[in-house]
Design a protein around this nucleic acid. Structure first.
Lengths: 278, 278
DNA sequence: TTGCTCCTCACGTCACGTGAGGTGGC
DNA sequence: TTGCTCCTCACGTCACGTGAGGTGGC
C-alpha cells in the first residue's frame, strides 16, 4: 500500500516534534498526505520526508514560517533556491548587525560616552529638494540609501548643484514612537525666494524651502548605532535649560555611508532646535 | 533642581521608545527616578542615561531582559562584566550553531540525503556503567559532554576497562516530544552475570546490563544536526516492513566530539530496535 | 480490557507594538 | 480652551511548548 506514517512515526523520522508537525499542518506549511475525516488522525507519506528535512534546516537558519511555506511550495527549483539565497543574505546582514552591536557594546564599556561640546547655529532658510515618507526605526537605513540617490538625481535634472551635505528631519515623536515622518533633503545652490519658479520634479521628490531655525549642534563621529550617545549629550543640556522646541530633530550627513565603507569614519551633525532667545 | 525628564524626553535622549521604557519600568529593569503618585507620570534622571545606553546595547546583542536586569543591578563592575562576557560567549556559540546550520542546509541542497544501507545486528546483553537523566532536545549536547567523562571516570575507579564505544538510549517519545529520558552508557569488559557483585559507583552513575536486542543499524558520518537524514532512511524501512518495536532508539558514538573537533569526521551508529523475527 | 497514541482546545512564553479610551499641564 | 503628552488596560505578534480533557486502535 501507500507508505503512510502516523505523526509519531513521522516525528521520529524527521526529528520534528509532534507539536511542531501539528503547527506546520495548521500553518499550511506541511499538510499531511491524508487526514482521517472521522478521527482527525494525520497520515504522512514517505514523499514528505524531504520537505520536512528542508523545513527543519530553514527553521534552523531562522527563516520565518511564512517564507518556509513559500519555499516549500515554490513552483520550480530556481524559485526555491532564490528564496533560500535571499534569506541567507538577510542572515548575513543580521550577522553583520550583531557584530556591529558587539563592537558598540565593547566601545561603551571601554571608552564611555563621548565628551564633545555643543555649539549654537542659526541655520538660514535654504532651498532644497525634499523627499518625505513614513518610515519605521528599523527601516531608516535602507530608506535613506534609496532616498539620497533620488535627491541627487533630481538636483541633476534641475541643473542645480547641491550646496552642501544632505540631511534629514525627524519630525514629531519619531524617536519616542519608534518611527514616523522622515524628510530627507539636499540643499540647492538657489535663492530660496526663487523656489516657486523651479520646475516640477519626477517621482515623489519635491522642491521646497527649509525655514530658518536656531539649532544646538553636536558632531557625531562613528556608526549610526551610537547616535544615542550624542543625542543624550546634546539633548540633556538643551532640555536642562528649557530651551528646546518641539520642532523636528535634524541630522546632517557630512560623511555618509555613500562616502565610506568604514562605519567609524562616518561624520554626522546632530541638530536640536532651540528657542530664538536661547 | 534635580535634572528630571519626562518619558518622552528620556526616549528622545536614549532612542528607546516610550513603550519600551514603560516595559522596562514594569519589568523592574529601569525604574524611573520618581513616579508622581497622583498622575502616574514617570520622571527619569540624567543619571539613568548610562543605564539606558547600556541596556539598549545589551538588547542589541539579544541579551534577555532578565539578564539585562541582573547586569544593571550588579553589585560591582566585575560582576557586571562577567555577566556581559558570559552572554557574549553564548552569542558566539549561537553564531557557530547558525554557521553549522547554514552548512547543513547547503549540503542538503547540493548533495541530497545519504544512501547507505542498513544491516541487522543481534546485540548481546552487555554490562555497562550507566547514567540516566531527563534531558531536553536542545540540552543533549552539553549533557553528553559531561556524562561520558563521568562514565569513564567511574569505569576507571572500578578498575574495569571499557569494552567498546559509548552510546546512548533515547527512550519512549524522546524525538516526538522534544525530550525525555536519556541513558548514556559505556560497555564494560565484564561478564553480565557478574554485575550484581560490582561495587557501587559514586554520583548518580550506576552499573547495569543492557539487555540483548535485535537492531537495525545504519552508520551516520558527519554532524549530529544531520542525524535526521539517517533516521529517516533507517526508520522508513523498519516502519514500512512493520518490524519496529517501541523500545528505545540507540546511538553509538564510534567517533565522538571527544575524539575530533571536525564535525564532518564524526561517526555514529544509529540503531532502531526491531522484532526478534525480523 | 489496558495502555498507548492520537485528537482538539486553551493558555503560556518573550519583548515589546498597537490601538482604545481617558486624564493632566501649558 | 485647545492640543499635546501622559496614563492604564487589553490584545496582537511569533513559533511553538505545556498541560487538560477526551477518544481511537491493538
Amino acid at each position: 500500500m501507500a507508505e503512510l506514517f502516523t505523526v509519531g512515526e513521522f516525528a521520529k523520522l524527521t526529528h520534528l516534534s509532534v507539536k511542531t508537525l501539528h503547527h506546520y499542518h495548521e500553518a499550511g506549511l506541511l499538510e499531511p498526505a491524508s487526514v482521517d475525516p472521522v478521527t482527525g488522525y494525520r497520515r504522512y507519506s514517505a514523499d514528505q520526508l524531504a520537505a520536512a528535512q528542508l523545513a527543519r534546516r530553514l527553521r534552523d537558519v531562522r527563516m520565518p514560517l511564512a517564507q518556509v511555506r513559500d519555499v516549500l511550495s515554490a513552483p520550480d527549483p530556481a524559485a526555491r533556491e532564490a528564496g533560500i539565497a535571499a534569506h541567507l543574505d538577510r542572515l548575513r546582514q543580521d550577522l553583520a548587525g550583531t557584530a556591529a552591536a558587539v563592537a558598540s557594546l565593547q566601545a561603551l564599556l571601554v571608552a564611555g560616552p563621548p565628551t564633545a561640546s555643543a555649539v549654537l547655529r542659526d541655520a538660514a532658510a535654504t532651498a532644497c529638494v525634499l523627499l518625505s515618507d513614513d518610515v519605521g526605526r528599523d527601516a531608516i537605513g535602507p530608506w535613506c540609501a534609496q532616498a539620497y540617490p533620488r535627491l541627487f538625481g533630481a538636483a541633476g535634472k534641475l541643473g542645480v548643484p547641491p550646496s552642501g551635505a544632505g540631511g534629514a528631519l525627524y519630525s514629531g515623536g519619531w524617536f519616542e514612537d519608534g518611527g514616523g515622518t522622515v524628510t530627507a533633503y539636499l540643499p540647492l545652490d538657489l535663492d530660496p525666494g526663487a523656489v516657486a519658479t523651479a520646475a516640477a520634479v519626477p517621482g515623489r521628490v519635491t522642491v521646497g524651502v527649509l525655514p530658518a531655525q536656531r539649532l544646538a549642534v553636536l558632531e557625531h563621529r562613528g556608526p549610526f548605532d551610537d547616535l544615542d550617545l550624542t543625542y543624550a549629550r546634546l539633548g540633556r543640556h538643551v532640555l536642562r535649560h528649557g530651551t528646546g522646541t518641539d520642532g523636528p530633530l535634524r541630522e546632517v550627513y557630512l560623511i555618509s555611508p555613500a562616502d565610506t565603507d568604514d562605519p567609524t569614519a562616518l561624520l554626522t551633525e546632530v541638530c536640536w532646535p532651540v528657542k530664538e532667545n536661547a
